[in-house]
Design a protein around this nucleic acid. Structure first.
Lengths: 88, 88
DNA sequence: GTAAATTATAGCACATGTGCTATAATAATT
DNA sequence: AATTATTATAGCACATGTGCTATAATTTAC
């Protein structure tokens, strides 16, 4: 992905944020008693994608997160219940 | 995008959710006194992308939303402060 | 009403999200 | 230790997110 022409640093892949999201997702998933496979199946997604999200391999779309929140029956905001660390 | 082989309906593009997100983003943006152009510039993004998000033309990635939240200096969860409608 | 500011749209290139399928690795159970 | 369950990874095809650039449309300011 191209660097912006402006001097502003571009965060393409917000690793810290994605780690926090992954952590929260896993916590909620386990609290609700779902395996990755079950969550995938119930969400109409693949097991691969759940694993990719939870291991911070990809940058999921918002609709993907909506799907997970629906299956887990939690407010979307619960999956983002963290403070983003300051960027360097 | 292919239909899942399971009978589960697949939400590829969660239009209702994205509309709610767009609405919240716009509200926060205006409350903070940013034009789309300024928000784009400060976030290291393009004006096009802000417009696409706010008009529900695309399905943004989570990192994109993180970028916006950082610039707007709000918790990410504030941008998701809504209930997803029931899926049909 | 005109000019300026803001927002929306379009087309292109390119990177990557996602499903599918399969396999490997790890953890839990027996 | 062996078996089963769960998680992680890999490669491929294809759709699409995102930046860039430009233009059009709409809104706001004067």
């Amino acid at each position: 992905m191209k660097k912006a022409t402006k001097s502003k640093r571009v965060l393409i892949f917000d690793e810290e944020g994605l780690k926090l999201l992954a952590k929260h997702l896993k916590k909620v998933r386990m609290a609700k008693g779902y395996s990755q496979e079950e969550l995938a199946y119930e969400s109409g997604m693949t097991l691969s994608q759940i694993a990719r999200i939870e291991t911070v391999k990809i940058n999921p779309t918002v609709s993907t997160i909506f799907k997970l929140a629906r299956t887990l029956q939690v407010p979307v905001s619960d999956l983002f219940d963290f403070k983003l660390p300051k960027e360097n």
